[in-house]
């Protein structure tokens, strides 16, 4: 198997605390992979290491064979990795459309002064970006609110807008941090369809953190389980559900009822 993304024994220490220890994963192109674990298990820390927000104490991240460890977040994004945030982080004062356009900046060819000085190729590029941004909004079903202020959108729409903004950076690898948080069963059902849809439509590879076990088990092809920073299990959903270590880690949480 030729992995698109590879994490090699990623370790993150904060002072004496080991937040994540030796996290290794190889994610095949086109896969939808889950990262689960109880609160505080180090899932978001893994995301932050992969996306360049934290420099891992130890270990490497490879994208398509290229070592991207230690790159700053914007360079990681440029390399083809996009993410969403657990507690939605939109540009609140901008419209939905503007949020998506910011995502396109990383692929922009023209310089800042070209568009300011009415340089025709730059103006054409801006027009193209606008069209593309509307397409992306359409893909997440937000065309009708393109001109609305992002902070005024309902919660679910904000989640989808964040995904559209991430897609605007033209990623190959997308990290979703709790996309189903705060959704009712109906909505999370739709979300599963949606995740599969964008994977196919944008030929993505997806890694997602999720607490909603229905979503994780329903959409992921492979799952990593973290507990206290240690990878306690990995495998296809069926194997994870019956794994005694996982059940123990989740004792009293959703997994027990589900197992």
């Amino acid at each position: 198997m030729n992995a698109l993304v590879e994490a090699r024994s990623l370790t993150m220490r904060f002072g004496g605390l080991v937040a994540v220890s030796e996290f290794s994963a190889a994610i095949a192109p086109g896969a939808i992979v889950g990262l689960i674990g109880p609160n505080g298990a180090g899932k978001t820390t893994c995301f932050n290491m992969i996306t360049g927000f934290y420099r891992p104490t130890q270990g490497q991240v490879l994208l398509d064979g290229r070592d991207i460890t230690g790159l700053p977040p914007h360079a990681v994004c440029e390399a083809g990795i996009a993410r969403t945030f657990q507690n939605i982080r939109l540009f609140g004062n901008g419209t939905a459309l503007e949020n998506v356009l910011v995502g396109m900046y990383v692929r922009q060819k023209s310089f800042w002064w070209q568009s300011a000085l009415f340089w025709p190729p730059a103006l054409r590029e801006e027009a193209r970006q606008r069209t593309r941004a509307m397409e992306l909004l359409d893909a997440v079903g937000l065309t009708s609110v393109a001109g609305e202020k992002a902070s005024s959108l309902p919660y679910g729409a904000q989640r989808r807008l964040e995904i559209a903004r991430a897609l605007a950076t033209a990623p190959r690898f997308l990290l979703l941090d709790e996309p189903a948080a705060g959704m009712n069963p109906q909505e999370s059902q739709e979300l599963m369809e949606f995740i599969r849809h964008i994977r196919d439509a944008f030929s993505l590879t997806i890694l997602l953190i999720e607490h909603d076990m229905k979503v994780v088990m329903g959409v992921c092809e492979h799952i990593y389980v973290l507990d206290y920073g240690v990878t306690i299990a990995q495998g296809p959903p069926a194997a994870i559900q019956s794994n005694p270590k996982v059940i123990e880690a989740y004792l009293g949480e959703e997994a027990l009822a589900y197992a």
């Binding site: 927000f53 977040p73 914007h74 540009f91 356009l101 910011v102 800042w112 950076t169």
Partner: peptide, 27 residues
């Protein structure tokens, strides 16, 4: 002109949420 261009939108993005701007590839 600059504020209406994508560069200007990125300025405002930095103002609104620097972390998110970095994650979206904005230098």
């Amino acid at each position: 002109r600059i504020l209406r261009s994508n560069t200007g939108r990125c300025f405002k993005a930095i103002r609104d949420d620097e972390v998110a701007a970095r994650a979206m590839g904005v230098n």
